[in-house]
Design a binder for these strands. Structure first.
Lengths: 368, 368
DNA sequence: TACAACTCTGTAAGCGGTTACATTTAGAGT
DNA sequence: ACTCTAAATGTAACCGCTTACAGAGTTGTA
């Protein structure tokens, strides 16, 4: 039911020229006589010719495809797990990357590595013929592996643990973010005892945030008791579950819980509410990411805003720059974060004033 | 900094055999003597050879890549718009598709069509050399275009308007969904006057839901006044905005608003609350999709659950089946939806009981 | 009109694999 | 040792396009 598509041979025959001429007319590289070009174009139209991108890529060594590798929660032969774990920050990053890639004329090839059996270098390497460069999300590879991969194909690391010696890294400033959060908690709210809810333990980004938070707390004289470092997995359900478990322990609660993302913060608040604890009156809870929906929560989440789509976009920009120029690219690009103070820490909701009568389009253009 | 990778020619030379033998050892198609295979394998290891997927694809005509085409909100040179419009249902579908594709051994190539200048057939056709099949999300193409495309490459339509005569369609049962929602509202809550908040006007899925809702209401004797069909764009901000605008009009409000997705329902409820209207006491609001986060809202959303990841997964299954077998595939696959009754319509929260002490892993395996 | 100097166009060799077909080799049978 | 046959390997064409190089055509100038 699918006809085999016409090739430049067909076009050449119909137009009465050689395939080289067809190719030249197609790419308008060297000069083709206007009359000849017209003949070729007419033949292309008639045959509904569309050049085969793969053949072109093979011969030119350029594919206009970027690969985006990310980790996916293990699937227990069960679609719902994905659903649960979905709507996470990764998706925003992917969207941002895809959008920017499209602007550069690239497509984005998604390649997820199941976190249960870590992809092995080979599956990644086998992409090297297909894509022009690779973005590794929330870095799953060790330094050696990254170095090895980067020798074969341009690589940009997105988030993840510390900077790599062998590839450009794009990430947000977790340290600065946590420092500003901790500073707010300690100076404005006089907090000294805090807790933390981490993301999936396999996620370097989660690890980075825990460490950054620990350091920030230590630096400000507060305490973070081990019993109050709760291990979530990025989902709101996990936030709820780990807080429930915590509430069943005898140790007194800290004055505040910082969460490694907003979803978990929501789950945490829910679990606290179920036990009759009020946020922020009885205990403070903060998030990370500033996803749109949680602004509508009551209390609205105090959180750290990072632009996931910007992160994805900058990673793409960086990779494209690496491909275009041979000149050196900055080794590490750190994007800023911003503490957004709302109700869940007990502050007045300082959210940007909401539009009062705007239509959707107005609202959109003002969103910038 | 990137060495050109070894080819089978290099391997053949090192192993002292011909490239055909290398290829055969690689694919273990016809028989290769064990000793020869060992030599070849050794050479591959030494050279760190990885076969070039593009070259293989060109010659075999099989690429192990599926294309997923979706519409993206117009970008005003502004990343934040993406952020705002993100975390939408599309992302879950993409995730589900990617996961299932990986299980089948395929990668997923993302290709977004900016909704401002609808991609034109050509950009889609030019994918035909790269991917083995195409999934069109929330169908952006007219019937003729789909038919044209489907003659060139296997196509599966995901959601969107009615079924197409020329390609397999995978969608949820919007009609049944709206019927069950309307039935609930009219029989349990004695609602007769309702409103509706639609998604982006360009989205066929949104259109389908409006129509389905209209029919269901008409069928049950209720009324849906034109002034109460509010045009959102899927985002919660748009839900808030259109409801604010509606509240500024003099016409009395209906008894309930159904929203085309959960995000907008959240925005709608927020706008109502700001004006001092309580949900569900003063007015009922319902959603669509059943995204995880809104279960934690108060009131928890009454909504229609559809599994986006399942939708994506089934679309992939269908496409792969089309590729594998030449046998006929069912023309239309309709996935069920389920009315989930929670607090926002005034019913008791019948949500599945929450786990009380589960660790994260326990919680996960029970999520199925 | 002849010849240089361009401008166009064609030929053919890749890009890195697969695979039909031809050829060599190995092992069995006598 | 010597066919005979099947298994293993090699040769070369092909997938669809780009591009270096060569050849043909065109134009201008002397």
């Amino acid at each position: 039911m699918v006809d085999s598509p016409p090739t430049i041979y067909d076009v050449a025959k119909l137009a009465g020229v050689s395939i080289a001429t067809v190719s030249r007319a197609l790419n308008s590289l060297s000069s083709v006589r206007p009359s000849t070009r017209a003949k070729v174009m007419a033949a292309m139209d008639e045959l509904e010719f569309v050049p085969n991108a793969v053949a072109r890529g093979l011969s030119r060594g350029k594919h206009w495809i970027l690969g985006l590798v990310f980790t996916r929660a293990t699937v227990d032969n069960n679609v719902l797990v994905v659903e649960e774990a979905s709507l996470l920050y990764t998706d925003i990053v992917i969207r941002g990357a895809e959008t920017r890639a499209a602007e550069h004329g690239y497509s984005l090839l998604l390649s997820s590595a199941d976190d249960s059996h870590p992809s092995g270098m080979n599956s990644l390497l086998s992409l090297s013929g297909t894509v022009d460069g690779l973005i590794l999300l929330d870095r799953v590879l060790g330094d050696e592996d990254v170095a090895y991969l980067a020798r074969r194909i341009p690589v940009v690391l997105l988030a993840g643990r510390g900077d790599s010696p062998s590839a450009v890294t794009v990430r947000v400033d977790n340290k600065q973010a946590m420092r500003s959060l901790v500073e707010h908690l300690t100076t404005v709210h006089d907090i000294t005892r805090v807790g933390f809810v981490s993301g999936a333990s396999a996620s370097p980004d989660s690890v980075a945030r825990v460490i950054a938070f620990r350091e920030a707390i230590k630096g400000s004289g507060g305490t973070l008791d081990d019993v109050d470092v709760l291990d979530g997995d990025w989902t709101s359900a996990s936030g709820e579950a780990v807080m429930q478990a915590r509430l069943n322990r005898p140790e007194p609660l800290p004055q505040a819980f910082a969460c490694a993302n907003d979803q978990m913060a929501v789950g945490v608040i829910y679990a606290l509410n179920v036990r009759g604890l009020r946020v922020p009156d009885d205990i403070i809870v903060t998030g990370f990411d500033d996803i749109t929906l949680t602004r509508y929560f009551k209390p609205a989440l105090t959180t750290i805003r990072q632009s996931g789509s910007l992160l994805g976009a900058v990673a793409v920009d960086t990779l494209v720059a690496t491909l275009d120029a041979s000149h050196e690219i900055e080794r590490t690009i750190v994007l800023p974060t911003e503490l957004v103070v709302r109700g869940s820490c007990g502050c007045v909701d300082e959210t940007e004033p909401r539009l009062t009568l705007a239509g959707v389009s107005t609202l959109r253009s003002e969103a910038g």
